[in-house]
Design a protein around this nucleic acid. Structure first.
Lengths: 365, 365
DNA sequence: TTGTATGCGTTATCAA
DNA sequence: TTGATAACGCATACAA
């Protein structure tokens, strides 16, 4: 059989082959196989014949040729600033989910917090004619203006985890203030008064809003924040270091001798490091010190004790990002201007074993 | 400026435009911008002029057109059976690393352990003319024959985490037997005699080899495995359930009242569940019971106590997979038959806080 | 109801 | 040294 022979030789069968096999023209095959509107004028006989032949010959459309001709790549770029962050996987799944439904494919890249890599990848994606772009940003290492540029050049772009103040590119992010409010409220209700804080590094996007949210809420509740119970994660660009630094800082916090019955960590990884330090210093979690994190990454629930943490709807965020991009693509297609939408999702609190009622007042440090 | 106008309209500048701007022909531009061998015959003046113009106009090659013409997509498909598995991220990074160096781009897909999704994605990748394919397989949910088919059709394919017995598709995997040997040796040296085991689910690829490795090593060391200390994870297709089931099974193990001083978990997630159960039952890890895992996923080091576990060189595995595929692509390009290579990497043991010397003999359960 | 012809943006083979 | 020109595989406007 001809089909088999050509397949074995690695020569893909194309429309021309199908056309030849059915003794119809190339255009006919194209219309029929694509279910084009005009295809309904063909006789059922031809339609059948063509479809059968395509099947029999193992015809598979060449997406490259199709893209060139139709000017649609059916691909969207997905750029992670740092895919090592456990935050990313659920987001990716959310993205993939929506893209799959639309028969789009993600081109996934990982900038590793390196600006040159970011730029190179951006370039590669544009060369590949991605129809849209999703950037999962956690670090502040790059100037967003570049993306604005992009969004204006008919490549609908959305940022996950970072809100563009200039308002030219769409974004999906968690409401950090609402998140920390939940955490603080929870601790206050449990009777915690002396609360320690590990703040995020300045170069991480969420650091500032989370801290200001904490301050705002404390002020509103008429509570004081003891600055001697506040430590800062240093700037760095490696996910793993969050753990080590949190560990070190917590030790330092403890050594200050200032009592605290609860600790609010910048994120889950930080919380893990803090728990290790507390444990080593003989301070039991949660009996002597409650700990709360932020993110609810996968391992948080699997820790012993499981971590109470602010849960980001990561999958939904990814999904939304895809939807926004797909809407944008549709807009571009119809020669409309893609809308800039900014979603801020409200997180909830996963209350688990790492927090409990504050112990009777006494020193903990 | 013409360039600016066309960019704002979203009309990409192409070689033709550059050629027109320099008053040279299309071919000239192509040769020069691609640094083709023949380009060295052009006068330095022309060369400069063309390059400058391309720069000035913001020319960006259209990868789609290039692919169609050159029959090279510069893309490789990366299919995960279940990207939720923390095992995947480091592998992906390893893959990405090697691809980036070769200016290749990964098309990432997640089959979610669903055969139809797997097949659909496979189809999409082939339509997109991926030059190679990397499958990161942990579950046994699909027939590998499909991939063999592929490998023979000039799409170099490599499987990470699964060895194809029929020997038609390349693979990279960890030496499971060597891994469990390290774990067992470690425990024996620490004086553990009564060891409990949580075996992996049958549908997970690594389950069988790990268990047979344990048996082999125990036999070789003249030790007995107490079948009353062995439990099996049920089959399921969700990563999270590993934790819950391990938790439940460990409780059951404890309730059997049969003493053990160490527990070998199928993998890290399983170990997390076991630790939770032990802890809740008042059995201290590692004082009363040592626990060892397998994989060394990111959170393992951040647990308290940190998990002793067999470390898979995940990044290197991903990297290797990419290299194999790239070699294969080169082979296809040169009309050679891509070699089938099978790598089995030796893991090492990350000895951390979850294991220690066996306590003096007494009941633990 | 079906066929023909042109072009998508490149690369590559000819001539000149 | 450079310029025409023909593919690559497909979609589509226009003919027939």
């Amino acid at each position: 059989m001809a089909s088999k022979r050509s397949r074995e030789r690695g020569l893909a069968v194309k429309m021309r082959d199908v056309a030849a096999a059915c003794d119809v023209s190339l255009g006919t095959v194209s219309l029929i196989l694509n279910g084009a509107p005009l295809a309904r004028y063909f006789s059922p006989a031809t339609t059948e014949r063509v479809k059968k032949a395509a099947q029999r010959l193992g015809y598979r459309p060449n997406a490259t040729a199709r893209s060139l001709r139709s000017r649609r790549s059916h691909a969207v770029g997905v750029m992670f600033f740092d895919i090592t962050d456990p935050f990313c996987t659920p987001v990716l799944r959310g993205i993939e989910s929506a893209l799959f439904d639309a028969s789009y494919v993600p081109i996934v890249t990982d900038a590793r917090n390196e600006p040159p890599r970011f730029e190179r990848y951006l370039e590669m994606m544009l060369e590949r004619q991605v129809e849209g772009l999703i950037v999962v940003a956690n670090w502040l290492f790059v100037d967003l203006a570049i993306l604005g540029d992009l969004a204006r050049r008919n490549v609908p772009t959305v940022i996950v985890g970072w809100e563009d103040e200039s308002g030219v590119v769409s974004s999906v992010m968690v409401d950090n203030e609402a998140g920390v409010r939940l955490a603080m409220e929870h601790l206050y209700l449990l009777g915690h008064e002396r609360i320690a804080f590990i703040r995020g590094p300045k170069s991480l996007i969420d650091s500032a809003p989370r801290w200001s949210g904490i301050q705002k809420f404390a002020r509103g509740a008429g509570r004081e924040i003891d600055s001697r119970l506040v430590v800062d994660l240093p700037d760095h660009f490696e996910t793993d270091l969050g753990f080590d630094n949190a560990y070190r800082l917590t030790k330092e916090l403890i050594s200050r001798g200032r009592a605290f019955t609860a600790l609010v960590a910048f994120d889950d990884l930080t919380a893990f490091g803090a728990i290790r330090a507390l444990h080593e210093s003989g301070i039991k979690v949660p009996e002597q010190c409650s700990v709360v994190g932020f993110d609810d990454v996968a391992p948080s629930a699997q820790l012993t004790p499981p971590l109470t943490t602010v849960r980001q709807p990561l999958g939904r965020m990814g999904n939304m990002a895809s939807s926004i991009v797909m809407d944008g693509i549709r807009a571009v297609q119809e020669k409309r201007i893609p809308a800039v939408v900014r979603h801020r999702l409200i997180p909830d609190l996963a209350i688990r074993g790492s927090t409990q009622r504050a112990p009777a007042k006494k020193r903990t440090g």
